[in-house]
């Protein structure tokens, strides 16, 4: 079993295996995204209170979800990298950080665009917007530490530890900010309760969420492949790959 994991997670094996996956992930992300956007922008009913401007949630909410999800992926794979010394896990974590930061950035920008008509200002110190901003800072700190340390292995381990410390802190940060101030509308999609949202709005939202996940999956594979090629640039399998070109 252990041997199998070791071989399976070798950058060389990953490189060969991931090529077809990227194609599948990106095509299905595109299809689902286009369909979800169509349903969201043209089919879903107008909100009785917020008018048409609510439609930005079909980008905003999936981006915000993904920004948190990607941080979890980063922390878990950093943990795997530190504990079991699997290099591929470190590469996934390093490749995920800029993607997660971009999702957080998109969530912030769309959030403030939505805030202008709703709250009358582009930026309001609302609890969820603020914790999203702090999440972006956590990503930036991770990336800064990763690039500041020259030795690749200790850069991975150090920034990985930071990601894990961040994950312990995120709930504390989130709830303290929530307690501090809240203007944001309450969560409208929860697992345990009946969602307080019309089904015609919910379906495109969920479609977009799945599309964003697939998009991330494709992107992280591409970036991890690059990372693998770059880090193993002096190893034989990369050389052979280059010679075959």
């Amino acid at each position: 079993m252990w041997h199998w994991i070791q071989r399976f997670s070798s950058p060389k094996h990953f490189y060969g295996m991931s090529a077809p996956l990227i194609k599948w992930f990106s095509v299905s992300a595109l299809l689902l995204g286009v369909y979800g956007l169509y349903l969201g922008l043209f089919v879903a009913p107008t909100d009785y209170q917020q008018g048409e401007s609510y439609r930005i949630i079909f980008i905003h909410v999936p981006a915000a979800w993904m920004s948190m999800f990607v941080y979890m992926v980063m922390a878990v794979s950093s943990g795997i990298g530190i504990i079991w010394q699997i290099r591929l896990a470190d590469m996934v974590a390093a490749a995920s950080a800029p993607i997660g930061a971009s999702f957080a950035f998109v969530a912030l920008v769309t959030g403030s665009l939505w805030g202008k008509p709703m709250w009358g200002a582009y930026w309001v110190w609302d609890a969820r917007l603020t914790s999203e901003l702090i999440l972006l800072f956590l990503y930036l700190g991770y990336m800064a530490l990763q690039s500041a340390i020259e030795d690749q292995r200790s850069a991975d381990k150090a920034s990985g530890l930071l990601a894990i410390v961040g994950v312990v802190n995120i709930p504390i940060i989130h709830y303290s900010v929530e307690w501090w101030n809240t203007l944001h509308q309450g969560a409208t999609v929860t697992k345990f309760d009946k969602p307080s949202m019309h089904i015609d709005m919910l379906i495109p939202l969920l479609l977009m969420a799945v599309a964003f996940k697939l998009f991330y999956a494709a992107l992280v594979l591409v970036r991890t492949r690059n990372e693998a090629l770059y880090r193993d640039r002096n190893r034989r399998w990369v050389r052979e790959l280059v010679e075959r070109l």
Binding site: I134, F137, L138, L140, G141, Y142, A144, L145, A148, I149, A158, L161, L162, V165, G166, N169, I172, I173, S176, V177, W179, W180
Partner: peptide, 27 residues
């Protein structure tokens, strides 16, 4: 302990630590 070996780690230190200080500041 993460930045002690980094040259000119001062700004980097504040970048990674300040977000973690936020709950203390709030309360």
């Amino acid at each position: 302990s993460l930045t002690v070996a980094v040259n000119r780690g001062g700004v980097l230190l504040s970048l990674i630590i300040l977000p973690l200080y936020i709950p203390i500041l709030i309360f």
